[in-house]
Design a protein around this nucleic acid. Structure first.
Lengths: 197, 197
DNA sequence: TGACTATGTGACCAATGGAAACATGTGTCT
DNA sequence: AGACACATGTTTCCATTGGTCACATAGTCA
């Protein structure tokens, strides 16, 4: 689709996005350490130097990838909680968040790998702020307080922590996936009452 | 100390550990992406190929570093909760855990960067198991259940999540360090009652 | 059409992880 | 003590990588 459209010989048409797709593919299939500019470029059918027309840096490319991932994640969570009543939002947000992480582990890791990217990039910063807002809503119902409340932090981090432990820690190996679902939901349910005052 | 002891010309004496120290220094001072075998080797005063006598791989070296970090972290937490009464253990464990993460962010990140290391390495696996045991103790008082209980998972992940968000996420930038301390403690205190049945 | 700009190419470079062949030190057995 | 085996370190070499530069080509717009 993105390939044989406006590509006579030069000019891919939408290299910037195509290469992000390629980063995603490689990252999920072979892990982050196998993402090289050259591998991405070749897969897209372009010389590796072409990428520098769209991204200043490898770091810049990864930042763009993380930003896109964060946007998608926020959108996904937002969609899944759309028609959930206010009182049950935390559970819904948590499950959606963890679900996204488990289905896109590479992207999820990259989103929070701040030492490998440029956290000040406007796109990234904005996407992350959006995510934080969603999590805060799930956490304590309103979003007007600038200062993070203890309960909001607790909501944020427990969900985030579960997600991390699911895709990396021992949860990803020692626990059967079927019971993991249940385990997660029970944990979140146990926490929910605390968050509602 | 480690330097001019048994080092006539060849034979450093304790290269394996010295290079781990160097990894730590670089990782904390300049970030993970600047850790190169050559840089470590030069700093220790040895040719870069010498490292391959002690570690099969860069990944193997990083795994050893992560394992040592996990052992130290477990020891540190263990020590800080030694004379805390059973009922208040969760708070103590949480604070100690987060404290270690904030003081050794590079090491902490590496410990959980499982896609960059070899999680099956016995040293690493054992150290992680030890950590999990400690966290479980803090979570629900006994360690006999093989299956992870929801409460144990909740304890584990909330503490882990806070730690992550402290060293990377927005907490590391937008929140003043002074009030962060208080915020963390309040969050953990809010969670504690849930964990005690 | 002609000029300007955006996008892509190819040749080049220094640094990196890793392998191979060689050198030197240490310990052990007689 | 001498000789041998083994552990540890060095040098040299290589393919790959991120990055730069000069050049080529494709759209665009006067």
């Amino acid at each position: 689709m993105t390939s044989n459209k406006t590509r006579s010989a030069y000019h891919h048409g939408d290299l910037a996005n195509a290469v992000l797709d390629e980063v995603e593919r490689i990252i999920e299939e072979q892990g982050l350490e196998n993402v090289s500019l050259r591998a991405c470029a070749k897969a897209v059918g372009v010389s590796h130097s072409a990428l520098f027309r769209h991204y200043a840096d490898k770091r810049d490319l990864l930042t763009a990838f993380a930003a896109r991932g964060a946007r998608r994640m926020a959108a996904s969570v937002n969609q899944q909680i759309a028609d959930v009543p206010q009182g049950k939002r935390f559970l819904a947000v948590g499950l959606a968040y963890i679900d996204y992480a488990r289905k896109n582990p590479g992207a999820f890791r990259m989103i929070f790998r701040e030492d490998a990217l440029n956290p000040d990039h406007p796109d990234y910063a904005q996407a992350m702020q959006q995510m934080a807002a969603i999590l805060a809503i799930g956490g304590h119902g309103s979003e007007d307080t600038d200062a993070l409340s203890p309960k909001a932090l607790l909501a944020w981090s427990s969900v985030h922590g579960i997600a991390m432990l699911c895709i990396d820690g021992s949860l990803s190996r020692d626990v059967a996936q079927a019971e993991l679902e249940a385990l997660i939901e029970q944990s979140l349910r146990a926490l929910a009452p605390v968050l509602l005052e």
